[in-house]
């Protein structure tokens, strides 16, 4: 039982890290796509329309795919005001409660995102830019990303580590 749990955790960590790597590659792709397309244009060629479109979608995928990884790194800025003034025991309690609140928010958005994907598939929705791109290929990022973020926040709610340090200031 314990071994299965450990395996699941390793699997989850691997998925989150792999998504962050893809997000990093998407960032580099933004540079490549623009340089490529400006280069073609100035050589008198027609830049591929998908180069432009891919940068707009790239920003979205990058943000959603990298978000769970940033939760693990405590990279989402939060302000320590109340938590900094509390004694250790109470602070731990508040910190876990806030993390649990984040689990609820992200979990709910993951659920609504999942329903949105189903709607998009049922309605055959397209995102129309240079191409007709199936909308569900974009919205699928919501259940995946918010779902994994919920798991990462759950670690701060019940795990060994806390999200808040108790030092005043904006933290990451």
């Amino acid at each position: 039982m314990r071994a299965v749990w450990a395996l699941m955790r390793r699997g989850h960590d691997l998925v989150v890290t792999a998504m962050a790597v893809v997000a990093g590659l998407a960032l580099v792709w933004l540079m490549v796509a623009i340089v490529w397309s400006v280069g073609m244009r100035n050589l008198g060629m027609q830049p591929h329309a998908w180069l432009f479109t891919s940068t707009e979608y790239g920003v979205f995928y990058m943000t959603m795919l990298g978000a769970p990884w940033l939760v693990r790194r405590r990279g989402h800025v939060h302000i320590e005001l109340v938590t900094a003034t509390l004694p250790d025991g109470v602070r731990a309690l508040v910190s876990r409660a806030v993390a649990a609140g984040c689990v609820v928010v992200c979990g709910y958005l993951a659920w609504r995102g999942y329903l949105l994907v189903q709607t998009n598939i049922a309605r055959m929705d397209f995102d129309v830019r240079a191409y007709f791109y199936p909308r569900w290929l974009l919205t699928i990022a919501f259940p995946v990303s918010f779902g994994l973020m919920a798991v990462e926040f759950a670690r701060f709610a019940v795990g060994r580590e806390l999200m808040h340090t108790g030092q005043a200031g904006i933290h990451e």
Binding site: T55, Y57, F60, G113
Partner: peptide, 29 residues
């Protein structure tokens, strides 16, 4: 209600698939 939350996700998708957001990560890089 819940329809509004779906709308919120749609709006979020709209604001993040915007060309105006492309240069900032590149200046950071």
């Amino acid at each position: 209600g819940e329809r509004g939350v779906t709308q919120m996700l749609n709006n979020g998708l709209g604001s993040l698939t915007s060309y105006a957001l492309v240069p900032i990560p590149l200046f950071l890089l």
